[in-house]
């Protein structure tokens, strides 16, 4: 894929849009269709497109696989950490109502961070699967 000018140019235009769309899906998931799982996959697809067209090695320079390994674990930890935090604030595990003064606000914060954790884990696992299978 090194010599396809059209692909290079199109990918360069599409890539930021795909990543931006992934972030939109992540943070707008409460109101429309979307959420952590979809956003993670779309983000990873954007990175994989870049890797397929410009070469995996260039993608690995931008995002080394050790960074992905840390992100994989930190997404799960963020999710579990929200649960622990809600115990510390006096509620039950993963009971977001206690995270803010108003239970509805607490739920909103809880869902925000939980979905973020899911998104981080899914995006980094999918990208590192791509690394494992292409090299």
């Amino acid at each position: 894929m090194q010599h396809h000018t059209v692909l290079h140019v199109v990918a360069k235009i599409l890539l930021p849009l795909i990543l931006l769309f992934a972030l939109y899906v992540q943070f707008h998931g409460d109101f429309g269709p979307g959420g952590g799982f979809q956003a993670g996959v779309i983000f990873a697809v954007g990175l994989i497109l870049y890797g397929l067209i410009y070469g995996v090695d260039i993608l690995k320079e931008a995002i080394p696989s050790r960074v992905l390994r840390v992100l994989m674990a930190s997404g799960v930890l963020l999710y579990a950490g929200v649960g622990v935090l809600s115990i510390l604030m006096g509620g039950q595990y993963l009971d977001y109502g206690v995270l803010a003064h108003d239970p509805l606000h607490g739920q909103h914060w809880g869902i925000f961070f939980v979905e973020l954790g899911v998104g981080i884990t899914v995006a980094s696992v999918m990208t590192s699967l791509f690394y494992a299978f292409t090299s």
Binding site: D30, F31, G34, V114
Partner: peptide, 18 residues
């Protein structure tokens, strides 16, 4: 109880958080 208009999100992240 949860807030978001997208019921799938509220079930996924809150009711079925575990």
């Amino acid at each position: 109880e949860v807030g978001p208009p997208n019921v799938v999100t509220s079930v996924l992240a809150s009711y079925r958080g575990y």
